[in-house]
């Protein structure tokens, strides 16, 4: 088992050019997202402790960890919704908290719940991100309809959120994120509230769309299967947001192999 871990982490290290605790991807002008000695405290509670992590442009990274390990705290710091207590978070070379508005149109988020505006129809919800970018009404509608259709919601564009199922609402929310054509997609357990079949179908669609559109994506999850389905890199986090494993996934992984990795991740998270 230890040999397997070593082999996988070696793959990750080779691809990412690991330097001590910091992964730096070779051959790019710099990491898209970087954490340098980041600590986040809420009173006495340490949610993230002295974290170093780099995410390269074009990677689809799954941040995997148990509930309360600090994944969402990391997510909020990347998105600029909260600031680190110590250390530095940089996204596209800038500070997402202090330079919040600079990221308009460069970053889109899919949240755990769909977070659709209840007073807007599906198409108007998708248009919301585009309105913030000052895109013309006609182009907004065209782009919103394109993404709704791509995600199988044709015919539901004028429905209000309450008339849509959970899976449909989450697809509207994904459409809203993709419609802005942002370089960076942040997803906070977007399929965790859905049934297994819908969740599986949506994450397959999601991973395909991310790759098709060459996005950098950070996908937070507590599901090992979801991490393997989606990520081409899996960062396994222990509490408080300490990196237990940093795995690069190359190509399809067989069932037996996935089971071995699953056991390995379980063991390290339980430790």
């Amino acid at each position: 088992m230890q040999r397997e871990i070593d082999k996988m982490e070696k793959t990750a290290d080779t691809a990412a050019g690991r330097n001590g605790n910091v992964s730096v991807v070779a051959g790019t002008e710099g990491p898209e997202i970087s954490f340098r000695g980041v600590t986040k405290r809420f009173g006495d509670l340490v949610a993230v402790d002295n974290l170093d992590l780099d995410i390269a442009k074009g990677q689809l990274v799954a941040l995997l960890g148990k509930t309360g390990c600090g994944k969402s705290t990391m997510f909020n710091m990347i998105s600029g919704l909260s600031a680190p207590t110590d250390g530095e978070v940089r996204v596209m070379g800038r500070n997402p908290f202090t330079e919040f508005d600079w990221y308009r149109g460069k970053m889109a988020i899919v949240f755990q719940s769909d977070r659709l505006l209840p007073w807007r129809t599906a198409v108007k919800n998708v248009e919301f991100g585009l309105e913030s970018l000052g895109i013309s009404r006609a182009e907004r509608r065209e782009r919103a309809m394109y993404w709704l259709e791509k995600l199988g919601l044709k015919g539901h564009e004028n429905d209000y959120p309450h008339a849509l199922s959970g899976g449909m609402r989450q697809r509207v929310s994904i459409s809203r994120a993709f419609a802005t054509d942002a370089e960076l997609l942040l997803c906070d357990e977007p399929f965790s509230a859905l049934d297994e079949m819908t969740s599986k179908r949506l994450r397959t669609e999601f991973a395909r769309l991310v790759k098709e559109n060459r996005k950098t994506a950070v996908f937070i999850t507590h599901s090992i299967d979801e991490a393997f389905d989606i990520g081409d890199r899996i960062v396994v986090l222990k509490r408080p947001a300490e990196i237990a494993h940093d795995l690069k996934i190359e190509g399809e992984i067989g069932a037996a192999e996935r089971e071995r990795y699953r056991r390995m991740i379980h063991e390290s998270l339980a430790a």
Binding site: S79, L81, F100, D101, A108, F111, S113, L117, S132
Partner: peptide
């Protein structure tokens, strides 16, 4: 939650 979602798009 809705406020955060809206803010994430950095509207005017």
């Amino acid at each position: 939650d809705l406020l955060e979602m809206v803010m994430s798009f950095r509207p005017s």
